[in-house]
Design a binder for these strands. Structure first.
Lengths: 218, 218
DNA sequence: GTCTATACCTTGATAGAC
DNA sequence: GTCTATCAAGGTATAGAC
């Protein structure tokens, strides 16, 4: 792996672990065993690194989360989708931990982020409407819009919400399950008679997973 | 007003305007026309200031948001409540803009925050159950718990969500109305036949307010 | 591409006079 | 209670050698 990619990879890891604010370019360089000068050869500054990371994140979202073509197992498809989505959010969670701050310092990135969010909103809305077309949910257009916002907001801020309520900063697999429960919860009230039972089952399933204590390794 | 209170007041204003990270103790002192040394006479450091601000916030929430004793106008009561609540959140929004970061730097504050959130959760849950008792909503215990979490999360992260999607950082009255629409939206699917019409009316009302452009001052 | 060295600046914080 | 003066520490960023 070349130095540029190593810097990106290490930056993501350190930002997630200690928070973007606490991690300086010196820390990143030291952790990689390279000089600060070398780091600055590859990136203009810290914002430049963050912009690259954001590109990775948004590209990943664009390529992996194409509109669903729903079959008869629409709800299972949805949960698989959610599983990957929360996983992605966790891998870049430092970004949402510090969203306001990061965007405030870099208006170029902020503009990109706003554009990205607009596209994302359209996609989320498309998923909601696809679920309606598949008769999984019953919802009017206005509520569909509101629901799409709530979904986006829930997924975005789920990790900071979790982190803020425990002393140790680590997120675990159960937290992801718990997030999925929350998202299913948002859909649930709109479920048709056809899907009601199924979504209750899914919610119970993920609730169980969320409540489970991890088996000890020893 | 004494210097200590002035420091608190100015800090809140500056934190909200420019973000907690960007505002240093020197900036606060300069803005007040006092010396940095004077500021440090009153507060141990920046974290100390933030801790005091958090006390104000949590105290305000504790004294002003007592459990509702619902009468026949339960939903109107709820919206009045939400109005004040969002207003409070806006007045201290810098805190949630930077929540993860602020808590990560101050484990004492984090502990207080966690305690506070636990109490808050109980209160929110009590409101949900009171609405159920008043036959405004119909919800089982498990969903009531999930709903309480969603409510808390929505209110907490509403301002950062709004701020992240526009270039200029200022929040306006319409944003609060829009937040209320989101919260009503969360209740809506559980509404009983009795309250369904009423909540639709309220949602439409706040939607209209949210969509209105502010009359120009001239 | 990478290192060493370093210069500049901001921040946090204190000592001591008034 | 407030000011002036000051400093150490740490972070950003660059120059120039290899």
């Amino acid at each position: 792996m070349n130095t540029k990619d190593k810097i990106i990879r290490t930056s993501i890891a350190m930002f997630n672990l200690n928070g973007e604010r606490a991690v300086t370019t010196n820390h990143i360089a030291a952790s990689l065993g390279i000089s600060p000068g070398n780091l600055y050869y590859h990136f203009k500054n810290k914002e430049d690194i963050i912009r690259h990371i954001f590109s990775l994140y948004s590209e990943h979202l664009n390529t992996h989360f194409k509109p669903l073509s729903l079959n008869e197992n629409a709800l299972e498809q949805l949960t698989t989708y959610l599983d990957s989505l929360f996983d992605l959010m966790w891998r870049y969670h430092f970004f949402y931990d510090n969203l306001t701050d990061i965007l405030a310092r870099d208006s170029e990135l902020k503009q990109d982020y706003i554009e990205f969010q607009k596209k994302l909103f359209t996609q989320v809305q498309a998923v909601v409407l696809a679920l309606r077309d598949a008769s999984v949910i019953d919802i009017n257009d206005s509520d569909a819009k509101e629901l799409a916002h709530m979904l986006k907001m829930t997924v975005s801020f789920w990790t900071p919400y979790v982190k803020a309520r425990r002393m140790t900063g680590v997120l675990e697999q159960q937290d992801i399950y718990n997030g999925i429960v929350k998202v299913l919860m948002l859909f649930k009230p709109y479920c048709t008679a056809l899907s009601k039972e199924k979504i209750n089952g899914l919610q119970a399933h993920y609730q169980t997973l969320a409540d489970e204590t991890l088996p000890s390794i020893a």
